[in-house]
Simulated scan of single mutants.
Amino acid sequence: MLLIRCPYCQMERPEAEFKYGGQAHLTRPDPNSASDAEWTDYLYFRANPKGEFGERWRHSAGCGRFFNCRRDTASDRILATYKIGESRPAAG
């Protein structure tokens, strides 16, 4: 089981208290000018790398807030967690 540190609560808690929210740092296309292909890309296609990956999580059984996380998908190790709006921590 993963132990995830919520950057708002400042506590490390079991993964069961959190909900995965998908890939982090996605930019929503402008609905007034985006093509069908751009919307399809945004809605359905995500990166699936082996190694460091930016994710969004929600502390559903705690403060209820979304935050970002850097996780190594090969080792399942949490590298960093940080608040929405904060700069992405440097890669390790």
Rank of each mutant, 00 (worst) to 15 (best):
13 R>D: 14
13 R>I: 06
13 R>P: 00
14 P>T: 04
14 P>V: 03
16 A>F: 05
17 E>H: 13
19 K>N: 09
20 Y>N: 06
21 G>M: 13
23 Q>A: 07
23 Q>N: 07
23 Q>I: 08
24 A>E: 10
24 A>L: 04
24 A>V: 01
25 H>R: 14
26 L>S: 10
27 T>V: 15
27 T>A: 14
28 R>Q: 12
28 R>P: 06
29 P>D: 10
30 D>P: 00
30 D>E: 12
31 P>F: 03
31 P>K: 04
32 N>D: 11
33 S>K: 09
35 S>D: 13
35 S>V: 15
36 D>Q: 07
37 A>F: 05
38 E>R: 01
39 W>F: 08
39 W>S: 10
40 T>E: 15
40 T>N: 09
40 T>A: 10
41 D>L: 15
41 D>S: 11
41 D>M: 11
42 Y>K: 09
42 Y>H: 07
43 L>D: 15
43 L>V: 12
43 L>T: 07
44 Y>T: 13
45 F>D: 14
46 R>K: 06
47 A>F: 03
47 A>M: 03
48 N>Y: 02
49 P>A: 04
50 K>I: 14
51 G>Q: 01
52 E>F: 01
52 E>H: 05
52 E>W: 03
53 F>A: 07
54 G>W: 02
55 E>A: 10
55 E>H: 06
58 R>D: 00
60 S>R: 04
60 S>D: 14
61 A>C: 06
61 A>N: 11
62 G>F: 01
62 G>L: 01
63 C>D: 15
63 C>L: 06
64 G>V: 06
64 G>A: 10
64 G>E: 12
64 G>K: 12
67 F>V: 05
67 F>G: 03
68 N>V: 04
68 N>Q: 09
69 C>T: 14
69 C>F: 01
72 D>Q: 09
73 T>K: 02
73 T>I: 01
73 T>L: 03
74 A>G: 06
74 A>W: 09
75 S>I: 07
76 D>I: 00
77 R>P: 00
77 R>A: 15
78 I>M: 11
78 I>A: 09
78 I>E: 13
79 L>W: 04
80 A>R: 08
80 A>V: 00
81 T>V: 09
81 T>C: 10
82 Y>G: 05
82 Y>I: 04
82 Y>K: 06
83 K>N: 05
84 I>M: 13
84 I>E: 13
84 I>W: 02
84 I>V: 14
86 E>A: 15
88 R>Q: 12
89 P>T: 09
